[in-house]
Nucleic acid binder design. Structure first.
Length: 283
DNA sequence: AACATGGTCAACCGCAGTCGC
DNA sequence: TGCGACTGCGGTTGACCATGT
């Protein structure tokens, strides 16, 4: 369908975002939300395309983001989920509150892949590298687990819970996840969910407090590594979400093309005292 | 100290999916 | 039903930083 580029590429800025741009975007989104990304840059007074704004917001500016390396538990969960879902980073990310698909994807490519290879596991199929295709089912089911057996994984199982409830137990969104098992998973028996749990089972759900610091943080932020208990990321996520329901009509009507809404007066940090949003960053 | 190499991560690109007309 | 607009996703790129020589 002959579609137009997401934005007129002329005159639009590309590349790294400046602090000023970030601030404009955040200020705008926190005070007005976004109705359609296309309009955001215009209204916020940015020379970026909407797509770029969306990306910047979701991958970096969202106040609920956790920064820093993935904890071992999170990593293990990612492996587990990857075994079931394949490269569906967004779905995987959905199970890791505070993490973005981009972040997970990067971490997978730079860290996890290597680790798995080192251990002789094919990061794609989650099976032993040397193993010819189509090994017996029994064997297929254990990719992730192996990882753990190799011992590199967190001595503790904690994350497992997540996994255990993760996809399988998940609930709500499970529906799709379950049916949408990917090639990888295809390769993998799909009972993946259930099975995968192997890891999970192995882990046996006991969240070991011992788990590294990261663990702590992980669980803290991830209420419980317990998916069932996971806050709706959405809940956490926003208060801001409310934003998305704001009176756009008003805003839009109030501004023409060139109209960069006067958002200067808004103190965005008022919305996010503390938590994930570090005011310092902006100053 | 200078250069080369490798690793990491933010950002871009283009396609696919969804929705409304 | 078909088309266009828009969003979301996954793959890829490139800049920056750290480490090694």
């Amino acid at each position: 369908m002959g579609r137009q580029p997401c934005c007129e590429k002329v005159g639009l800025k590309k590349g790294p975002w400046t602090a000023e741009e970030d601030q404009k975007l955040v200020t705008f989104l926190l005070s007005h939300g976004h109705c359609c990304w296309r309009l955001v840059p215009k209204l916020a007074g940015l020379l970026r395309c909407g797509k770029s704004c969306r990306l910047r917001w979701t991958n970096y500016l969202r106040p609920d983001l956790k920064r820093g390396l993935l904890s071992e538990e999170e990593e293990a969960l990612v492996i587990d989920l990857h075994a079931q879902l394949g490269n569906r980073w967004s779905k995987i990310a959905a199970r890791l509150p505070g993490r973005t698909d981009n972040e997970i994807k990067n971490h997978w490519n730079t860290h996890i892949k290597k680790k798995l290879k080192k251990m002789g596991i094919d990061p794609v199929t989650h099976r032993p590298l040397a193993q010819p295709l189509a090994p017996p089912l029994t064997q297929q089911r254990d990719p992730a687990p192996q990882v753990r057996e190799e011992g590199e994984r967190c001595d503790e199982p904690s994350k497992q819970q997540a996994s255990s409830q993760g996809p399988a137990a998940g609930g709500a969104d499970e529906d799709e996840d379950e049916e949408e098992i990917t090639p990888a998973s295809a390769a993998q028996p799909h009972g993946a969910g259930a099975t995968t749990s192997s890891p999970a089972s192995a882990a046996a759900g006991a969240v070991s407090p011992s788990c590294s610091s990261s663990c702590a943080s992980a669980s803290a932020a991830t209420p419980g590594a317990d998916v069932a208990a996971w806050p709706d990321p959405i809940d956490l996520f926003f208060e801001v979400d409310g934003i998305m329901d704001m009176d756009w009509a008003g805003i839009l009507s109030g501004c023409g093309d060139d109209a960069a809404v006067d958002i200067g007066a808004v103190d965005l940090f008022d919305h996010y005292p503390g938590d994930g949003f570090d005011e310092q960053v902006w100053m």
